[in-house]
Amino acid sequence: MSLDPATVRRIARLARIGIDESDLHALQGELNGILGWIEQLNEVDIDGVEPMVGTGHAALRMRDDVVTDGDARDAVLSNAPDAAGPFYTVPKVVE
């Protein structure tokens, strides 16, 4: 499978990474190079093989339902590039 420029643009849009037209060609070449190389996996017979999920060492541990965290607004907002009072902000979203 080989990526065309439209697909590269679509992926960039999904990933919310701005790309210039000038990047497009190089990026397309690099991604296609990597994709071409990982094509080798197609020769592996994976019939009946389960995908790896988790580490196989344990099942998920569950914690008790107790409030142990939160109430730390200063910490939560400490690195915000543009906090407004107790809030984070984003450019106005029109719904």
């Binding site: 914690r63 339902d65 107790v66 142990t68 965290d69 939160g70 939560v76 809030f87």
Partner: peptide, 27 residues
Amino acid sequence: ISQSKLFSGASASYGGEPNTHVSLVDA
């Protein structure tokens, strides 16, 4: 209905001052 959130220990209760029922996990 639970005391704390699904994946963090912050309070799940309704209301509260903005961003006070928030852990760094939630953020």
